[in-house]
Design a protein around this nucleic acid. Structure first.
Length: 577
RNA sequence: GGUCUCGUAGCUCAGUUGGAUAGAGCAACAGCCUUCUAAGCUGUCGGUCAAGCGUUCGAAUCGCUUCGAGAUCACCA
């Protein structure tokens, strides 16, 4: 049970016995703003009708009653109708020993819910770029957060491995590739295939007939032509090798891989069902549509005149299959906001078909990543390649670390690990600290920043704490030995305990809102608060042994919580940096 | 044109289940390393929360209108 709920109950009891108010909506508890004294604040305005007293008199009366009946409540003060309540240091000390003895602090109880998060979902004709990075980081992080909220989570990736765009790469390679392979060229597979996609578009200017030839190749593929299938398998294989390397370096993974070549025919049964129920209709040319004009939308095509399916058809089918096969309670699609309309229609059609689980579909819509010069455009060569960006961040981290002398005395592999952690930590934090639905700006120069509200700042705080703990252990302090509680606590220590104890609620809030930025903000606040404490109070030089032992335990808990929070963002934290 | 999203400090972003004097970082300026890691800490400067009207004890937050930015309304996926 969290602190806020404990207090809410106490306040509700007081308000009820004083004024007979039992409506929970009228009891509004929030954290006390830091410029005032207190831990939690009751807003008394909603209670004035029942109390028939002034705001201050009402607040004082409730405050008196609370202090008289709750030993955990130490004191209160009243400012302009706000009742600020302070809990006793003993209460906070008990909270700390409770949370520090929890080996999986922050982990919520099992909900029994099974949730799928689909993310990444790349096309196999070109390498990943900055936009995919936002998608991958969001999807991975949201999946980890939902796990921490007690759900069983399946990470899914639906690879768009078929279609005209792949045929373009295949055709260009066939015509101009001269047998080039990743091995012969030294190029990463996805980059090699992407190179021929670009080549196709270049050659198309000289020879417009290439479009028809690509279409012809697509028909051959759909007909199962052996040679075309062989080439398709080969080139997709190169791409997957490339993607795997990028995924691995980014630290993202998947429990389920889906391929559109295996799912693109799904959904036709649902179309038949909709036709027989009269929800869809067939035009004279044989195409099938769903009329959504009464919902303020347009008419949506579901089957072409030749009977082939479209994007919506297969998404209907895959959603149906996942809910039935995987027994899902929720399905989260991490897809850019340019597809808002698609998902709106998807849910609407499934509802019209009568599937109640349509409400359990959530489109986690995220905004585009823009560059200082505007949107990324592949034709103008302004796309930021994922692999290049990661390498640039890591390289910058390596240079910065060396410059600061942080790598002195470390082995080459230790130094490389740190550069990798810090570079990726900076990138991931930079992207995840922003609210997902917002369009965000990425400036390649300014974004490579390791000071202030950044991933490395938080990683650094962790490394510092670990360093202190190592020194303590080296000097013979047994960190696991039980120690007497200190006689008193510093205000900064109580503040840290309070912040630490918020972590479980923060996790739940991040899960409810599908928002890693909530976790990022928490980790930053905790690190910042700890740095102030670290600056003002020596740990190892503290002469009072009980105080020193407590500071070590508190520091250790801060480090562990930072590590846990950062892991929800997919960010590793180093032991030193 | 219809639908949807967004607009907070010079820049990048928090804060949006309605609560007190709207917060961080960057940039700029001024300080702090014989003491546990200065990727740190402290301070100064910086705001008509796009604008207006409304709802109410109280609005950056909710509603309406206007302005501005973006997305979408494909027999592409």
């Amino acid at each position: 049970m969290n602190t806020e709920k404990i207090l809410l109950r106490a306040v509700s009891d007081s308000v009820n016995s004083l004024y007979g108010v039992s409506d929970p909506a009228l009891v509004q508890i929030q954290k006390t703003r830091k410029e005032f004294t207190g831990d939690y604040t009751l807003v008394v305005f909603p209670l004035l009708k029942s109390s028939r007293l002034s705001p201050d008199a009402t607040a004082s009366a409730i405050g008196e009653h609370l202090v008289a009946h709750n030993p955990d409540i130490e004191s209160f003060n009243v400012i302009k109708g706000f009742l600020n309540i302070s809990l006793t240091p003993a209460f906070w000390a008990a909270r700390f020993s409770e949370l520090s003895s929890d080996s999986d602090f922050g982990q919520a109880a099992r909900t029994g819910r099974r949730v799928m998060v689909e993310y990444s979902s790349p096309n196999t004709n070109k390498p990943l770029h900055l936009g995919h990075i936002r998608n991958n980081l969001l999807g991975f992080s949201v999946a980890e957060i939902l796990k921490k909220c007690g759900n069983e989570v399946l990470k899914a990736n639906l690879v768009n491995d078929r279609g005209i765009h792949i045929c373009k790469s295949m055709l260009a390679w066939q015509l101009f590739g001269d047998g080039e392979t990743p091995q012969s060229s030294g190029l990463k597979g996805d980059h090699l295939v992407g190179k021929y996609y670009v080549r196709f578009n270049d050659e198309l200017k000289k020879d417009p007939s290439l479009t028809d030839r690509a279409q012809q190749m697509l028909r051959l593929w759909e007909a199962g032509d052996p040679a075309t299938t062989e080439l398709w398998l080969t080139m997709n294989g190169w791409v997957y090798d490339g993607f795997d390397a990028t995924y691995k370096r980014l630290g993202v993974d998947f429990d389920r891989m889906y391929y559109e070549s295996q799912t693109y025919l799904l959904g036709k049964a649902l179309v038949e069902e909709g036709l027989s129920k009269g929800i869809f209709y067939r035009r004279d040319d044989g195409s099938v549509w769903c009329d959504l004009t009464s919902d303020g939308l347009d008419e949506k095509l579901l089957l072409r005149a030749d009977g082939t399916s479209v994007y919506m058809t297969q998404d209907l089918g895959t959603a149906y299959r996942r809910f039935t096969d995987e027994k899902l309670d929720a399905l989260i699609y991490v897809v850019g906001n340019e597809q808002n309309y698609h998902f709106q229609v998807l849910k609407l059609i499934l509802k019209k078909l009568g599937y109640s689980w349509a409400d359990a579909i959530f489109h986690l819509s995220y905004g585009m990543v823009e560059l200082p010069e505007g949107k990324m455009k592949s034709r103008e060569g302004t796309v930021v390649d994922a692999d290049d960006l990661i390498e640039a961040m890591v390289s910058e981290a390596r240079d910065m670390s060396a410059e600061l002398g942080k790598l002195d005395g470390l082995s080459a592999s230790e130094a490389a690990d740190i550069a990798e952690m810090v570079g990726l930590g900076a990138l991931k934090y930079f992207i995840l600290k922003v609210d997902p639905r917002k369009t965000m700006l990425f400036d390649p120069r300014e974004s490579i920043d390791f000071n202030g509200n950044t991933g490395p700042f938080i990683q650094y705080t962790h490394a510092r704490i670990r360093s202190v703990l190592r020194k303590a252990a080296d000097s013979g302090v047994d960190l696991t030995a039980p120690a007497p509680a200190p006689a008193t606590y510093l205000p900064a220590e109580l503040e840290l305990i309070k912040t630490l104890s918020d972590f479980p609620e923060i996790v739940l809030s991040a899960g409810e809102n599908f928002s890693p930025s909530v976790i990022a903000a928490f980790a930053y606040d905790l690190a910042k608060m700890y740095n102030g404490y670290y600056h003002d109070h020596s740990i190892l030089r503290e002469s009072d042994l009980a105080a020193r032992a407590f500071r070590l335990r508190l520091s250790g808990q801060v480090a562990a919580t930072i590590k846990s929070a950062m892991s929800l963002l997919g960010i590793s934290v180093p032991e030193r940096m």
